[in-house]
Write a protein that binds this DNA or RNA. Structure first.
Lengths: 295, 295
DNA sequence: ATGTCGTTATCGTCAATTCAGATAATTCAG
DNA sequence: CTGAATTATCTGAATTGACGATAACGACAT
């Protein structure tokens, strides 16, 4: 049983037709047909039901498919493993939530690309859901997402624990003052849909119905907008303390259950971790000192 | 990267020479050399150090080897998975400890082979250690061994829990009477080294130094030997109660920690379970009724 | 009915690969 | 130096693989 045949088979199963698979595999249809047939002859069973409009898997084909995919991935990984001699090089693709993790990762990325100039670092952005899907699809090697993540095929490691706080204009005494009005404008980083979602849920839970949005590109403008009374926002406490000390806004704590947020790094359990990634995590992993500072 | 090449590569790595691998693979040396070389050219690294007396793996080869083995196994399994349509057939090879589990399994085997005549059932015997090695080596699909087993690649399921008791001649009042003498003869089933080991450890712990053995082929003769005062033995309590009620021997209980023994079924976590095995376990799994009887 | 479009199956041709066997080159032991 | 191992290389035959053209089939619109 040839691995290349299995790759063909998987492609056919995926697109549901030998013609379409052929163009995807940069070959001709007769070739695909032939390889599928050799596979079928070798195994002694039909793998596809041939229809007038493409093919569908037989029961035996269904059983074979997961193996075909697994073998293909395993071979990919073997190639990488052989070439990875412990010295980070090549392309490292990781995912990250857009706001906070990216902000925290920036210094890491800077020192990393200096320390390992042979690595082409690619940072993909997305929501937790999107990023997890990409990790599962082998599109990224791992991702920093909003934890906890519970998935059979994934391993997670907690990287940052943070406390979220609500920022309002200085005149606002408590969060109740805001929610009582029943009509709130929230100011969000235009890329930061994670916090936006959390803040919305939080307000909805408190009975706020009319939520409007203001989007700004930088944290600085968000801060100014809040201090000018244009709306409220949600940020990690550690960010405020370190950046603005002018007390132009009010900081409102939230109950433990709502304020605690963890950023975890997830990657596939079965996939090998490249040296490039190992070194990155080593750099990104908070030192005991930094962890204390983040709390 | 061809799977057949990987198989060749793994064989060469295993036997440490292209010549030897060639004869093992039923081909010629030049062939093996060529395929290894294509693999090396494709990956761009040397996989072997060529020596005057065979070859040894390079660092890159070391990294590739586990993948080569894994892929080979995966392909084997894929073949089985395709052919296994849910109807048990073909060969089912399982391992079992020689005494108790085998005794308990006998009725299961009987009804199983009647229910699934298309399955060639092969029962391999061995010690817990040996059987686990065989499971890991894919020699048997799974095995009934003495639990608990803690291994990363294995899954275990408890099948029987039993209480072991010491049997002595009727005149012996307590176990102390035996151990005080400091010279004990133990009667064991000649195949049953598991209990033998347990009994020896138990006696050694109690300060007995001179242990001699008597071996008999059947439980009946062991029982007779014990009742005649020739020695002592160790058996599951459930076996005694159900077989002999003539009170010709004394039964001595043991402390919880020493008497409790569990028989577990272990199989590889990553390997697929054949329909044949699934059905076997379904039959072997103790019903609530039988479990109560065994306690 | 008929033609068109999209599908898979099949065939012949040619190139590439693979195999087996023979031979060379190397190294170590005696 | 010779002999017994080893791996490397070469060669011709056989096999396999890809390709392109064509056939066969069904669906759908005209």
């Amino acid at each position: 049983m040839d691995a290349a045949d299995l790759k063909f088979f998987a492609a056919v199963a995926k697109v549901g037709g030998m013609n379409r698979a052929a163009s995807k595999l940069n070959t001709v249809q007769s070739n695909v047909t032939a390889r599928v047939r050799t596979l079928e002859e070798e195994l002694g069973v039909a793998l596809f039901h041939r229809g007038h409009n493409g093919v569908t898997l037989t029961a035996a084909g269904e059983r074979l498919l997961p193996y075909a995919i697994k073998v293909t991935h395993l071979l990919d990984e073997a190639r990488k493993a052989v070439k990875d001699d412990g010295e980070p090089r090549g392309r490292l693709t990781i995912g990250s939530l857009e706001t906070n993790a990216a902000l925290r990762l920036l210094p890491v990325i800077a020192s990393y690309s200096q320390a390992f100039p042979d690595v082409d670092l690619v940072l993909r952005s997305g929501t937790t859901h999107e990023l997890i899907a990409q990790v599962l699809a082998h599109t990224v090697e791992g991702a920093f997402v909003c934890g906890p993540v519970d998935h059979q095929d994934l391993v997670e490691e907690v990287f940052f624990r943070e406390e979220l706080v609500v920022l309002t204009a200085r005149t606002v005494r408590s969060l109740d003052d805001v929610t009582r009005k029943g009509d709130v404008k929230i100011v969000v980083h235009h890329q930061g849909c994670a916090y936006r979602q959390i803040l919305e849920n939080l307000l909805i839970k408190r009975g706020v119905v009319g939520i409007r949005h203001l989007e700004f590109g930088t944290l600085e403008t968000i801060y100014r907008a809040v201090s000018a009374g244009l709306g409220i926002t949600l940020l990690p406490r550690s960010l405020i303390g370190s950046m603005w000390r002018d007390n132009a806004v009010s900081v409102h704590g939230l109950p433990e259950a709502e304020s605690r947020i963890t950023t975890v790094f997830v990657h596939r359990q079965d996939a090998l971790m490249s040296s490039a990634l190992k070194e990155f995590l080593k750099l990104a992993r908070p030192t005991p000192l930094r962890m204390r500072a983040a709390e």
